[in-house]
């Protein structure tokens, strides 16, 4: 009962935030509503006993990526863009394509509805989350972890090189 209540709360925050993100005129407003959506998703992660990911979601997305977005919005001048038309000329075609994707996904879910009960799933709680994720990252996923760190370094250097006026 309480589970469903919190699911509805978070789901409505997520959907409302997403809808306002893609329809607001000002990019700053879009960013604020996207932050609301990301926080709602962090709440659902907590609900699904993924505490580590909920923390990472708040720290990395809300605290890192969205701050980066707001900095870039501050650096570029969006005043004239906010006064122009927001949607491009083929918006009806875009809506048609999005509706097609939505219908496809929901139809797939509807057809596969019998497969959503997992006989192998054990009831009960997940193992203590942060410790388990740490063990998995440093034992089974050692190589991807290192590759990801290299990729972050490359992305950081690349971003600096591109955004700098003169090297």
């Amino acid at each position: 009962m309480l589970d469903q209540f919190f699911f509805y709360i978070f789901a409505s925050v997520i959907l409302l935030g997403g809808l306002l993100t893609i329809t607001r005129r000002s990019a700053v407003h879009s960013a604020i509503f996207l932050i609301a959506t990301l926080l709602g998703i962090a709440g659902l992660f907590l609900h699904l006993q993924a505490e580590f990911l909920a923390g990472v979601q708040v720290i990395l997305y809300v605290g890192g990526i969205m701050v980066l977005f707001l900095f870039v919005i501050m650096l570029v001048n969006l005043d004239q863009a906010a006064r122009q038309r927001q949607f491009n000329r083929q918006w009806w075609l875009a809506l048609l394509a999005a509706a097609a994707v939505c219908g496809e996904a929901l139809y797939g879910l509807y057809r596969g509805r019998g497969a959503f009960t997992f006989p192998g799933a054990v009831p009960g709680n997940m193992p203590p989350n942060t410790q388990a994720v740490g063990n998995a990252l440093y034992q089974n996923y050692m190589l991807p972890f290192e590759v990801a760190s290299i990729m972050l370094l490359v992305a950081m250097v690349g971003a600096v090189v591109m955004a700098k006026k003169r090297l």
């Binding site: 083929q90 394509a97 929901l106």
Partner: peptide, 23 residues
Amino acid sequence: AVLFVMGVAGFLFKRNIITIFMS
């Protein structure tokens, strides 16, 4: 699925490149 479709829709019909990134 619904959230993903919202992202697709925003990606396709917005004109501002920053909002496209948010999608």
